[in-house]
Design a protein around this nucleic acid. Structure first.
Lengths: 289, 289
DNA sequence: ACAAAAGTGTTCCAAGTACACCCATGT
DNA sequence: ACATGGGTGTACTTGGAACACTTTTGT
């Protein structure tokens, strides 16, 4: 990885601006699980998955909601740009993050060619974010259609993603097409209609999908929980993201290796006190990309 | 997603060149499984995983090997740029591909700030590539070390990646550090020494890792096989990539739902003829990113 | 005959599924 | 007392692991 003298010379001559360059942004999809009180002193709060959006102050898409993002800074690494952006725009510093996907379709941004490197960020409820709003996420799938042929299949479905904030309800409709042939897999996402800026609903959908998939084989869930939690809280968290009910007894056994019991219990809850647990990070819950 | 008139006006004024932009490349890691003849008329060929590298004609890293890549073209989508690049540089058109990861550390490229969007491409043996060479991949892991603390753990290991071509043997040494804490997972890859250009060994390692992981829960393997294959061929393919032997009887049962039997058999092989199969693409082998 | 791959059958064990049941608490 | 969550036990099912065994071919 060392350069020879002649190579060094060449570098001096190298002109950086010979070809046109695209703009590059980092865009971050921020998630949390919010406790929704039930109003019943016995009942536990329900978990609701939320995404944090900010209202754009300038065109394009002025006054529309968007995910947190910025043009990247040449002086900083991508992840440093991400962290600075999140610090400056929403004033948050403690979160789990991972890279999602890089979007670069020609027409993404009406201004010019923009490539977006997207990240997923997970927050617990202690973090207070500024300059934006948390939106409840409701996902509904429709119109599943499978056409098989001898080279593979074509699968399509409709996605309805409703984002509900304090005052606004943002409806978004996507159409997914997965084309599998002899030699290729092609996943296309078409935005049928969207009430948020750019193709950001697409990015949010990708993040949701990744979150769901990673639940099953990693310990990513702990990014959304406080340090101490009950097993029922953990179960509600899984259920909210997966969109299905789980059996309690089995859930406890399956997740036993993911958690460590503490010698602390909840109280004043109108029912038997429950033991608190913390995450048990170990290598088996591998999180390797 | 429609723009108002005043937004349209703003766009006219928008200056594209107000801030410095990074350069962006697409880099493609090309894999295939090569049949290595055993010289014994009874024995089946062994499968060897290979990566395709091209020798750089210009600085930086002149005369060193690199993965196939190009600066992206503002006129085209990322994936179109990728396809054009692969067509032009190595003259290939039939392959499976998927996006891997986007690298953007400040020091990746000695010339200027370069962000690399990396892809993995899978070829079968029928494809003849030009202007480069296939290298055998040998991977060895070393020095596994796990230090646990109450907030998580730190895991390190050494990776030795040897790439063997017709005339050259390229040795590469990486050090992986996975730091897991309360609120974060941090995977660092340090290049201790490398005989190929840029940080490309890093990209290759990522591709290998992804390939291995995806073997277990998708039907990605078929991207490396010809249309028709025997079950033993399929088994050898898994074994070569996973780096471990599998039990034949169990393998047949487990992969039964992945394949469709054909009414064709191999012959003149010095042993019982074997039935040929083709991929059975179905939705259960989900390949959703 | 025999070496190699092709293919089947069987036993054992681990883990997931479904469900019944009891416990502890605050109002 | 009772609603609610906390927590355990058990019978059943499914699928993977290990391994023994038979079949078929070309030389």
């Amino acid at each position: 990885m060392q350069l020879s003298n002649s190579e060094q010379e060449f570098l001096e001559l190298y002109s950086d601006s010979e070809y046109e360059k695209p703009s590059v942004t980092v865009d971050a999809v921020l998630f949390r699980l919010k406790d929704i009180d039930t109003g019943n002193y016995r009942k536990l709060p329900q978990k609701k998955l939320q995404v944090f959006l900010v209202k754009r102050k300038f065109p394009p898409f002025k006054n529309q909601y968007a995910v947190v993002g910025t043009f990247i800074d040449l002086k900083n690494d991508i992840e440093t740009s991400l962290k600075l952006c999140v610090k400056n725009k929403v004033n948050a510093q403690n979160y789990y993050y991972e890279q999602l996907y890089t979007f670069g379709e020609k027409q993404r941004d009406p201004r010019t060619r923009v490539i977006s490197i997207s990240y997923m960020l997970l927050f617990n409820q202690k973090e207070n974010l500024e300059n934006g709003e948390w939106f409840n996420i409701d996902l509904r799938e429709d119109n599943h259609q499978l056409t098989e042929n001898d080279a593979g299949y074509v699968f399509t479905k409709d996605i309805h993603l409703t984002l509900t904030g304090e005052t606004e309800k943002l409806e978004n409709h996507l159409k997914i097409t997965i084309e599998k042939t002899n030699s290729n897999t092609n996943k296309k996402i078409e935005i049928v209609s969207s009430n948020i800026a750019f193709d950001h609903i697409n990015i949010i959908y990708h993040a949701l999908d990744r979150l769901k998939n990673k639940l099953e084989y990693t310990d990513i869930i702990f990014g959304l929980l406080n340090e101490k939690f009950t097993l029922t809280e953990l179960k509600y968290s899984y259920e909210e993201i997966l969109g299905e009910k789980l059996l309690d007894a089995n859930f406890r056994r399956k997740t036993a290796h993911l958690v460590l019991p503490l010698n602390e219990f909840t109280k004043e809850a109108g029912h038997r006190p429950s033991q608190l647990f913390k995450a048990n990070y170990n290598l088996k819950n591998k999180d390797i990309d």
